[in-house]
């Protein structure tokens, strides 16, 4: 069975080459900061399971300090000029889309065909991680297709990958940092405290109020925690089950489903959902790191209101 460890090893090797190439990049005044940062990421992928919990904690501290003290620079490895790219675009034409479309095709193949496949009585891909394994496989195949079809230098994937990685910078690690913060919040019982606050202070004797509190609570809690998955157990145990389902006779499937989607409205509106909001802003090189959130809030607010109406109308006997 192919497991996630293969993906981690591959990622480790790629980040290690980013670190090595950074060290030799004299054009970047902070090149050793980049080497240290991506080197630590490589170490985490290659040897994270052997570092021990404290070792991983110190590694995380190192990453935060390098980023926080401004140790990361932005590389600009030699590449094709805008004019050259325009000329190449003319020459290659629609062939340029082939490597980019190889990516989704291989992912779809992995998820739809390879995932259900059985080899020697067991699954070929670790079923829990089939998507990520497929994505890594797709990345490798698409890179090879791109190199051959577009006749690019063999070092190009690593140098261009390093350029993009430096464009994203520390924001790349933020989703993983926030996931770890979620574990600390869980350890300290933060969710339960918030859940108790909400249920203790807001009277929910009328059904419309209770529906609004649950949906708003899911969204607000997601704003704070950055993740609807963290909000769901707390708000559902605190409000949805005792009040909406047991007292008012709501259909639990509809209540839960629309409740989760109300949380997603919070996801659209918080910098703590970094992989949805801050990483794309960094990838697109937007000067305002909150520009994506600002583009989403006008969709999120009416959708949240619509969710409350939908839940009220669909989930309860009228």
């Amino acid at each position: 069975m192919i497991k996630l460890a293969v993906v981690y090893d591959l990622a480790g090797v790629v980040f290690a080459t980013f670190a090595v190439l950074s060290a030799g990049d004299r054009a970047n005044p902070r090149r050793y900061g980049n080497t240290a940062f991506w080197g630590l990421v490589a170490l985490s992928f290659l040897a994270g399971d052997r570092l021990g919990n404290l070792g991983n904690g110190i590694l995380v501290l190192g990453l935060a300090l390098i980023a926080g003290l401004g140790g990361l620079g932005r590389s600009d490895p030699p590449t094709t000029s805008p004019q050259e790219r325009q000329a190449l675009a003319q020459r290659f034409g629609d062939r340029l889309f082939i490597p980019a479309l190889t990516l989704p095709l291989v992912v779809a193949f992995g998820v739809l065909v390879l995932k259900p496949l059985q080899v020697h009585g067991g699954p070929l891909l670790d079923p829990k991680q089939a998507t990520l394994i497929s994505l890594a496989l797709a990345a490798v195949i698409a890179t090879a297709v791109g190199l051959i079809l577009l006749r690019q230098p063999w070092i190009a994937p690593l140098q261009e990958g390093r350029r993009l990685m430096d464009t994203v910078g520390w924001a790349a690690l933020l989703p993983q940092f926030l996931a770890a913060l979620g574990a600390i919040f869980a350890l300290a019982g933060v969710g339960d405290v918030i859940g108790r606050l909400v249920t203790a202070w807001i009277p929910m004797d009328a059904l419309p109020v209770a529906v609004a509190v649950y949906c708003l609570g899911m969204a607000a809690f997601t704003l704070i925690m950055g993740n609807a998955f963290a909000a769901f157990p707390v708000m559902t145990a605190g409000i949805a089950l005792p009040i909406l389902v047991h007292r008012f006779g709501g259909n639990p499937a509809i209540v839960a489903s629309i409740g989760m989607l109300s949380g997603f409205c919070g996801t659209l509106s918080t910098p703590l959902a970094a992989n949805f909001n801050l990483v794309p802003a960094a990838l697109l090189d937007l000067p305002d790191r909150y520009a994506v959130i600002k583009a989403q809030i006008p969709s999120a607010i009416p959708l949240l209101i619509a969710n409350m109406v939908l839940m009220y109308v669909l989930a309860f006997p009228h």
Binding site: L4, V7, Y8, L10, A11, V14, V41, S44, F45, G48, T79, T80, E84, R85, Q86, A87, L88, A89, Q90, F92, L96, P99, A100, L103, Q129, L132, L135, A136, A138, A139, A142, T143, G146, L147, L150, Q152, A156, P157, L158, Q159, E160, G161, R163, L164, M165, V168, A172, L173, P175, Q176, A179, N275
Partner: peptide
């Protein structure tokens, strides 16, 4: 760590961008 493994697609994105 799986959260950050998605950056494995950056090299191919960079290559096709380099080629226009």
């Amino acid at each position: 760590r799986f959260v950050s493994a998605v950056y494995l697609v950056l090299p191919v994105v960079g290559v096709v961008e380099r080629a226009g």
